[in-house]
Amino acid sequence: MDTPLTETPARREKSLMARFWQWEASGILVALVVLTVALSIAADNFLSSYNMTVVARQAAFVGLVALGQTLVLLVGGIDLSVGAAAGLSAIVGSIALTQWGIHPYLIIPFTMGFGFLLGSINGVFVAGLRLNPFIVTLATWEIFAGMTLVITKGYPIRPLGEKFTVFGQGELFGVPLPVLIFILLAAVLVWMLRQTRLGRNIFAVGGNRDAAVLAGIRVGRVEFVAYGMAGMLAALAGILFASRMDAGQPSVGEGWLMGAITAAILGGTSLRGGQGSIVGTVLGALLLAVLANGTVLMNVSGFWQRVIVGCVVLVAVLVDLLRRKD
């Protein structure tokens, strides 16, 4: 949880239930449990370890992007360019591997650095020049997506080689590596938001920018870092996906933007900034993956999936409204 100071003996008097409902991500946790139980009854292969792996891997890619989006939303911004940044980074990473001869083990850090650079562009315009993040990232979305096509002319870059595909395809103790990386990074971010000054400043800037300025927080720097990290995490998702597919596809990252925002919002992150949690976003990404998986298992047409996701978001917003009225 993100407000450690409120979780203290003084508040323990309140029932466990009441405290649970106060937590932004409580709704999504309940929804996830209900959906999981329902699906495991309705479809006997839902709980199979193979299917669980599929769900987790699907959650991991969008989830990584959503983690970065959460940071940007927390500072009161929005980043529409994350999907395109993931795509462009995946392509540049693939080219670095196949044409520039960078060692396969260094490709991921290299690509993350490149992604941070892409995010910094948003950061300069939004944090530095105080332009509207929606417009800035709408523009960079187009630019990044366009650059991807300019570079690739629409053709995938392949093959990437076994030494590299291990990151996307490999497993440790039966868990896919992308899933492990996702969990690890989520844990790091939980710690960062709770225990570091940068993390607390992110909440302060998003919660009340003026108060943060008056408190002597370098607001622009905090915003800049948030956009940079969003680009970095998107790039990581993109290059892992390329590694998994053994190809730098120009289409990497398409559809991840909506997934990332949806996961964060389902997890209780506020579009007005200052409120939200990483745990909520992880649960949000899982819920989206379970929904997608469930529609497949239940033989529902894939076309219905988006309709269902949209309805879930509306329900989530309504639940949140009711909770805040209490």
Binding site: T3, A211, Q275
Partner: peptide, 15 residues
């Protein structure tokens, strides 16, 4: 001019 969702203590020592 406080950060609404943070605790009183954290607001006092903000930053």
């Amino acid at each position: 001019n406080l950060v609404p969702h943070l605790s009183v203590a954290e607001n006092i020592l903000l930053g």
